[in-house]
Simulated assay, not measured.
Amino acid sequence: MKLSDIAVIRGGRTFKNGIPESDEPTHSVIQLRDFDKENDQRPIQWEQLTRTDLTGSKVDNNLKVDDVLIVAKGPLKKAIYLNSVPNNVVANQHFFIIKVKPDVSLSPQFLEYYLNGSDAQRWMHDNSGGSYQSSISKKTLSELPVPNISDVEQQLIVETADSVRTEIQLHQQLIKGREQEMDAVFSSLWKERQ
Rank of each mutant, 00 (worst) to 15 (best):
Q93F: 06
T140S: 12
E153T: 04
D60H: 10
H171K: 09
Y113G: 05
D126Y: 11
D60K: 14
K176T: 14
K176R: 13
Q180H: 13
V158W: 03
Y132R: 13
N83Y: 01
L115W: 07
Q121F: 08
K99C: 06
S150L: 02
S118E: 14
I70N: 08
I97T: 14
S107E: 03
K176W: 02
Y132K: 14
W123P: 04
S135V: 01
T52S: 02
V85E: 03
G177A: 14
W123Q: 08
M124N: 06
V146F: 04
P75K: 10
M182D: 03
L144P: 06
N127T: 08
E167A: 13
A161L: 14
A91G: 11
A184N: 12
D60T: 09
V68P: 02
S135E: 11
V65P: 00
S128F: 10
V152K: 12
S137C: 09
L54W: 06
D183H: 11
A79R: 03
F186W: 14
I149H: 02
E159A: 10
S134M: 14
M124Q: 14
V164F: 10
Q169W: 01
L76A: 12
N83M: 00
P147A: 06
D66P: 00
V152F: 07
S105Y: 07
S137W: 10
Q173S: 12
R122Y: 10
T50S: 11
D103C: 05
S187H: 11
V146N: 04
D183Q: 15
W123Y: 12
V65Q: 12
E153K: 12
T50A: 13
D66K: 12
P145W: 07
L49F: 06
P86R: 06
L63G: 08
P145H: 06
K99M: 08
S131I: 15
S107W: 01
A91F: 08
K77G: 03
K101A: 13
P102G: 05
S84H: 12
L54I: 07
Q180C: 05
N87V: 04
V85W: 02
Y114M: 08
S163Q: 11
S142R: 06
N83T: 00
V158S: 01
V152Q: 11
N87Q: 14
I97E: 01
L63I: 07
L144R: 05
S107G: 01
D183W: 07
H171S: 02
T166V: 02
I70R: 07
D126G: 01
K139E: 15
Q172P: 00
D103L: 09
P108M: 05
V146L: 09
V90H: 08
L115H: 05
K138Q: 15
E181M: 12
P102Y: 07
E181Q: 15
A161V: 05
A120K: 04
E181L: 14
V100W: 09
V152H: 06
L170N: 02
L156D: 06
G130R: 11
G56F: 08
F110G: 02
R51G: 00
N127F: 10
